[in-house]
């Protein structure tokens, strides 16, 4: 598992049924691009988050393929529909096989 990787998400706690909400996500990850060289001149191998998904009660909201050109501490903002009360499930997949997850519940008025 890469060190110090911490996800952070911003989701409103409540929404009206059928409302569109803005979701923001960030994960602290170095996103080693594979382009950098160490002090001996050897290439530092690529090690990035390569995929990010968000689903609500099992329905996919967004599925992102990331390349090394995504900045350190990958940030995404996108819009989701809240059809009913439920839970957003966020997943980040690391090149090294680790999977980072977090969930956020939303109530419906």
């Amino acid at each position: 598992m890469a060190k110090g990787v911490k996800p952070r998400v911003k989701v409103p706690k409540k929404a009206d049924a059928g409302e569109a909400i803005t979701i923001k996500t960030l994960i602290s990850h170095k996103m080693e691009s594979g382009q950098r060289k160490d002090s001996d001149g050897n290439r530092i191998p690529r090690s990035i988050i390569n995929r990010f998904t968000c689903a609500f009660n099992g329905t996919s909201i967004i599925d992102v393929t990331l390349e090394p050109a995504i900045s350190t501490n990958p940030y995404f903002q996108f819009e989701a529909v809240v059809p009913e009360a439920g839970e957003f499930h966020f997943t980040w997949y690391d090149d090294d096989g680790s999977v980072y997850e977090t969930k956020k519940a939303v109530k419906v008025a």
Binding site: K6, R8, S28, N73, Y75
Partner: peptide, 12 residues
């Protein structure tokens, strides 16, 4: 305070 990437480190 979310767009500001500092806050993931503040949470840590």
């Amino acid at each position: 305070d979310f767009d500001n990437p500092s806050f993931v480190f503040v949470e840590q």
